[in-house]
Simulated assay, not measured.
Amino acid sequence: MGDWGVLELEGDPTPGDPDAVREMAVRLRGQAELAEANTARLRAIGSSTPSASRHTGCVRI
């Protein structure tokens, strides 16, 4: 791997699987994008008029 002795360390201070980290980052980005899209949809529903909500199939309580 690497020579961590230069930094006075015995081994890698952040061991892990880079591929697994990349995969998780992709999944988390997808979840974040979905959350942003859903937030925008909810804001649109919240700001719509009663007549607009009737046309989109939303139920106002």
Score class of each variant (00 low, 15 high):
39 T>N: 14
21 V>Q: 11
48 S>P: 06
11 G>T: 08
18 P>T: 10
48 S>W: 07
11 G>K: 13
5 G>H: 05
23 E>T: 06
31 Q>E: 15
28 L>M: 10
48 S>L: 05
38 N>K: 01
46 G>Q: 07
23 E>A: 09
44 A>E: 08
37 A>P: 05
49 T>G: 02
25 A>Q: 08
15 P>V: 07
13 P>A: 04
17 D>N: 14
21 V>H: 10
46 G>T: 00
50 P>M: 03
22 R>D: 01
5 G>E: 13
34 L>G: 11
37 A>C: 08
12 D>L: 09
19 D>R: 14
23 E>I: 10
28 L>S: 12
14 T>L: 12
52 A>I: 08
25 A>E: 06
48 S>D: 06
22 R>W: 00
29 R>Y: 04
47 S>Y: 12
51 S>H: 12
47 S>D: 15
15 P>F: 12
43 R>D: 15
51 S>A: 15
18 P>Y: 06
43 R>P: 05
24 M>E: 06
35 A>G: 01
52 A>E: 13
13 P>C: 04
18 P>V: 00
15 P>H: 10
29 R>F: 03
55 H>Y: 09
54 R>H: 11
24 M>L: 13
18 P>M: 02
6 V>I: 13
41 R>H: 04
10 E>L: 01
50 P>Q: 08
43 R>K: 12
5 G>Q: 15
30 G>W: 04
47 S>E: 14
52 A>Y: 09
9 L>C: 02
45 I>V: 14
5 G>F: 09
24 M>G: 01
40 A>I: 04
38 N>L: 00
54 R>V: 12
42 L>I: 02
29 R>V: 01
28 L>A: 09
34 L>R: 04
41 R>F: 11
38 N>V: 01
34 L>S: 08
38 N>G: 07
55 H>W: 04
15 P>R: 12
40 A>T: 15
45 I>S: 14
30 G>D: 06
39 T>L: 13
52 A>L: 09
50 P>H: 13
8 E>H: 14
12 D>K: 12
31 Q>V: 12
49 T>P: 02
51 S>W: 14
14 T>R: 12
46 G>F: 00
44 A>I: 05
19 D>C: 00
33 E>I: 07
19 D>M: 08
46 G>W: 03
21 V>T: 09
6 V>A: 13
43 R>M: 14
45 I>A: 11
54 R>L: 12
45 I>M: 14
53 S>F: 07
55 H>L: 06
38 N>T: 00
22 R>P: 02
33 E>P: 05
27 R>Y: 09
14 T>K: 14
51 S>Q: 14
24 M>H: 10
51 S>N: 03
28 L>I: 09
53 S>M: 14
46 G>N: 01
29 R>W: 01
48 S>A: 13
31 Q>C: 09
11 G>W: 08
23 E>D: 06
40 A>S: 11
34 L>H: 05
20 A>Q: 04
24 M>I: 04
35 A>L: 07
39 T>P: 02
16 G>Q: 03
17 D>A: 09
51 S>P: 10
30 G>A: 11
16 G>H: 07
45 I>L: 09
37 A>L: 01
7 L>E: 04
49 T>H: 00
44 A>R: 02
45 I>F: 06
13 P>S: 02
11 G>M: 11
35 A>Q: 08
14 T>D: 15
